[in-house]
């Protein structure tokens, strides 16, 4: 009996009417595939430029629709905005986890009662510890306004996937120039580094499993704060 790989592949070829399992001089196996042309008549980009007021307005609208919280802030006001959101988390001591590549300036407004814990692939915090922190603060790679989606790609300012998952509150900083209108624009930008672990976030976690009634906040962060800068 041949091994499973050989057998499945030869079944596939046989099913397509392309039998033969040897390698031809051209390097292909069996007969050449039928050529299928893919029509690309869909929009590759939206009508509004990245970071334009229309696109930002649409992103805010979509995020609010998902029950995410959105604040539009100027670059200079960002540290105060971060501090304000962290203060709301708890009256006493607060623990916030950040990826090691975070812009330290964003933390400048935090008071002494806030404990900042740094996470990196080299010295990762265990999941059980992430479960006890109050919030996580990350940057983002790109956002898509039509769908209200923010994408994290695991770079040092966004961190390991676990840190934006286990804590109950996610504070996410998105720069205006990172906001594109359509999904194809976002995908083509991400395609430059397809090997990075990607997390697409569209609002807080949610379920519609009970009578298709949407409930926000299940296993992922139950609260998503988006700080839209610029």
């Amino acid at each position: 009996m041949s091994d499973a790989r050989t057998e499945v592949l030869s079944r596939v070829r046989a099913a397509l009417g392309r039998p033969g399992s040897g390698t031809t001089p051209a390097g292909t196996v069996g007969a050449a595939p039928r050529d299928v042309v893919v029509p690309r008549g869909y929009r590759a980009a939206g009508e509004h430029a990245a970071g334009s007021p229309e696109v930002l307005e649409q992103l805010v609208d979509r995020l609010v629709d998902y029950r995410a919280h959105v604040q539009q802030v100027a670059e200079t006001d960002l540290p105060a905005a971060v501090a304000g959101l962290v203060r709301e988390l708890s009256a006493g001591r607060v623990a916030v986890v950040v990826p090691h590549g975070i812009d330290r300036g964003w933390l400048a407004g935090l008071g002494d009662e806030v404990e900042v814990r740094e996470d990196s692939p080299g010295s990762p915090l265990p999941a059980t510890e992430l479960d006890t922190v109050d919030a996580v603060l990350t940057a983002a790679r790109v956002a898509c306004s039509e769908t209200g989606t923010i994408v994290l790609d695991g770079e040092p300012d966004q961190g390991r996937r676990a840190i934006s998952l286990v804590p109950d509150v996610h504070l996410c900083v998105v720069r205006a120039d990172q906001v594109v209108q359509t999904v194809p624009e976002a995908v083509r930008l991400l395609a430059a580094h397809p090997g990075r672990p990607l997390t697409w976030v569209s609002g807080p976690s949610a379920t519609s499993d009970i009578e298709l009634d949407r409930v926000e906040g299940v296993h992922g962060p139950r609260t998503l704060h988006v700080l839209l800068v610029g």
């Binding site: 979509r62 080299g122 209200g148 390991r160 996937r161 997390t199 697409w200 569209s202």
Partner: peptide
């Protein structure tokens, strides 16, 4: 499927990422 503009989470991964996952 769910009648949403986008589902809350989509994960994409490629093999193993050292130190992450």
């Amino acid at each position: 499927s769910t009648g949403e503009r986008m589902n809350p989470y989509t994960s994409l991964w490629t093999g193993v990422t050292p130190g992450d996952g």
